[in-house]
Design a binder for these strands. Structure first.
Length: 197
DNA sequence: AGCACGATTAACT
DNA sequence: GTTAATCGTGCTC
């Protein structure tokens, strides 16, 4: 399969977040192919969105979100964790989708090595778990995911029927002010055990 | 130069 | 349910 085209990612961020569910996230790492089906994602939309890192404007950290869609935005948080996002919307408008969970389907043994032998449902059921399982860190920031022969990309996969998709407020927003705190911009697959806990 | 805090996780009680 | 781990980022002095 080939990477999803830039036109997939350059649409509205919430549409991309919802339609990413069912897609296959692929990581080529040291000759191994690691992959999983996206089952949870969140939209972060523009400088107005007080939960979005771009609320502080364009900085070295946030600049990739201002660039073209289809690039990775990987950032470091809590002194130890890496998070994977895909840049969305039109160039110049800062927005991205956080990949929060995937269902592992390829390269599971390698993922377990990178995750200290965690069992299947704990391998990738959280945004920092999946980056660890896929060997994603600062070196994977700013990659073009639409380029064939990349080390990281997204393919089409399953198509979940609309009635198995749920939405909810985003996770971990802390003291983010309303209305942003309650925006139902998290999308997940209902009753899927690989969604974050 | 120093500070508060974070789109989390794992290991506790 | 609670908390330690651990450091880049953006802001203030």
């Amino acid at each position: 399969m080939k990477p999803l085209p830039r036109s997939f990612f350059s649409r509205s961020t919430r549409t991309v977040a919802r339609e990413l569910l069912g897609c296959r996230l692929v990581r080529q790492l040291n000759g191994d192919r690691l992959a999983g089906i996206v089952v949870e994602a969140e939209a972060y939309i523009g400088e107005q969105d007080q939960a979005c890192h771009a609320k502080v404007g364009k900085t070295p950290r946030t600049q990739v979100m201002y660039g073209p869609a289809g690039f990775s935005y990987v950032y470091f948080t809590y002194g130890m964790h890496w998070m994977l996002n895909v840049v969305t919307a039109k160039e110049g408008f800062p927005a991205a989708v956080l990949i929060r969970a995937i269902q592992p389907v390829e390269g599971i043994e390698v993922m377990q090595d990178l995750r200290r032998g965690k069992n299947l449902v704990d391998l990738c059921s959280g945004p920092a778990k999946l980056t660890q399982a896929l060997g994603i860190a600062r070196g994977q920031n700013g990659l073009d995911l639409c380029q064939p022969s990349s080390e990281l990309w997204i393919e089409s996969g399953l198509v979940f029927p609309r009635h198995v998709i749920a939405s909810s407020p985003r996770i971990g927003l802390g003291e983010t002010p309303e209305p942003w705190r309650s925006k139902p911009w998290r999308y997940l697959v209902k009753n899927n055990p690989f969604v974050s806990k």
